[in-house]
């Protein structure tokens, strides 16, 4: 009789995992808007809809399951958020209205913060883009392209000569950056925004 009343508890091998059961909440709370992330029913509409799913190590659905399971390191190491093209096919089809691309953005920021990014191509591109914007208030294609391609795709440069020359000769790329007038204001706003982000 006593046997029936005993509840056998499976030992958790990694005690850290218990702590990380907050991971899903953390991701949801760091995401802009109401992500509905906790509502996932694992149906796979996102992974089925994704035009770049083939390149992903984990489908979005699987990634969300990993977040639930508290697999912080594995989830943040995944290349999935970096392969997301923000096409929003998954969002409009998701039966649970989960803001999937916005969750992907959050995971990118978390991966960068945690220094768990495996391939620096995408984060470098984003960072270079953002650097330019923070310097000039506008994007600066040729600066961005030359810096990015030299570092990550030096071999592609020869193939890209015709395009680059075409873009330049047709004045579709400026050789010098355009700067907004009130750069001081933008810098002050971004500085304060970064402080607020760090406080969270």
């Amino acid at each position: 009789m006593t046997e029936a009343l005993t509840i056998s508890s499976t030992p958790v091998s990694d005690p850290k995992q218990i702590e990380d059961l907050t991971l899903l909440k953390e991701v949801a709370s760091r995401t802009a808007g109401v992500s509905n992330l906790e509502m996932c029913i694992q149906c796979g509409t996102c992974g089925g809809s994704c035009p770049s799913a083939v390149e992903m190590e984990d489908t979005p659905r699987r990634l969300f399951a990993m977040l639930r399971a508290g697999m912080r390191e594995e989830a943040l190491k995944s290349n999935t958020p970096w392969i997301c093209v923000s096409c929003y096919h998954c969002v409009v089809r998701c039966p649970q209205n989960i803001h999937i691309p916005d969750v992907m953005y959050t995971l990118k920021t978390m991966a960068v913060d945690a220094k768990l990014v495996q391939d620096s191509t995408a984060p470098d591109f984003s960072q270079t883009f953002v650097d330019m914007v923070e310097d000039y208030g506008r994007s600066f294609e040729i600066g961005l392209a030359s810096r990015h391609y030299l570092k990550h795709f030096p071999l592609r440069l020869t193939n890209m000569v015709p395009m680059g020359m075409g873009m330049l000769s047709k004045k579709r790329m400026n050789l010098t950056p355009t700067r907004i007038k009130n750069m001081k204001q933008l810098k002050a706003i971004l500085k304060r925004a970064k402080e607020l982000e760090a406080e969270q």
Partner: peptide, 30 residues
């Protein structure tokens, strides 16, 4: 849950067929 049904083939074997695009969630692949 099926993402889409398409009649636009990407490869030869899909020509003339309806293509059901889905994540097989039990193997985690599209």
């Amino acid at each position: 849950k099926v993402a889409e049904v398409s009649d636009v083939p990407r490869v030869e074997s899909e020509k003339g067929k309806l293509i059901i695009q889905v994540e097989d969630t039990l193997i985690g692949k599209q």
